[in-house]
Write a protein that binds this DNA or RNA. Structure first.
Lengths: 146, 146
DNA sequence: CAACCACTTTACGTTAACGTCAACGTCGTC
DNA sequence: GACGACGTTGACGTTAACGTAAAGTGGTTG
């Protein structure tokens, strides 16, 4: 406490083996471009369970990964409830009973189908975009030539 | 009215050249597995503009296609507002000015980036799913062998 | 020590995308 | 001519996923 060593306690985290790093809620928020409110909300919804040092939340690698997966899931249109379901089952896996596991496999298969349809949707949508863009460029061209 | 010919007026639409067909709101709803309420809502939001015969809405091929594109857009996570924006610009294209067209191209490029990221997300997500599934199967296997 | 962050909880507000219900009109049919 | 299936408008309800504001805590910095 008396030694003025440059141990900013936070800045120090700069070059640690990723595994030992911890994050504040603000850091994570900036990192993923969400607000702290969002992160707290995800916790409230059972998607995160950070450590607590007193009042304040402390996030480890595990939490960061979870958040990343959560956001990815969201971009793919999954609801927080769905994401939580998978996360919970995943956590319970080691000692999960057979029924749970089969249920998990079902859910996974379901997600997979979802992915497949999304892939198809994307391909179709890209064609549409190509088409619209081509037309737009043509019109633009004609405008250029008066 | 007196001739009992099997002209069910609705059933008759069965084998028409797709182009001339028309649809009731209920037909479209079943077709795409949405409720009539949804379709009316999309109209209210400016995504559809069906013909009217008296009070009742009559949908043509064009409307069906729009609905299809709208739903596809939704599956890909676009908001109705975004979808409408594109549709409107597309409709206004022929007589659109250069600024409008350039704006449209911007939007399209944006959507394209979105698609690309979604593709990447899907690939990553599929790997995760593979991983989880593999683990689940392993655990299940061990359970089987007591 | 005062000022300033960054963090906390509590609670109410907001937006998008419909659902639901009431109250009514219009066919075709039994 | 009652009935059921389908259509209409209008209005209010609901859910998910946060936003926002209020009021307080704890650490460091000039």
């Amino acid at each position: 406490m008396s030694t003025p060593k440059p141990e900013a306690t936070l800045a120090l985290n700069g070059s640690l083996p990723r595994h030992r790093r911890t994050y504040s809620i603000g850091e994570l928020a900036r990192m993923f471009e969400v607000t702290p409110r969002t992160i707290r909300f995800y916790e409230q919804e059972g998607l995160l369970a950070p450590e607590r040092r007193g009042q304040t939340r402390i996030y480890h690698e595990k939490d960061r990964v979870r958040l990343k997966l959560t956001l990815r899931g969201k971009r793919l249109g999954f609801s927080l409830a769905e994401i939580r379901e998978v996360i919970e089952m995943y956590d319970a896996m080691p000692d999960g009973n057979a029924r749970q596991l089969r249920r998990l496999l079902e859910i996974l298969a379901d997600k997979r189908n979802n992915m497949e349809r999304q892939l198809e949707d994307i391909r179709l949508m890209q064609r549409e975009l190509d088409d619209v863009e081509t037309r737009a460029r043509e019109v633009l061209e004609r405008l250029g030539h008066h």
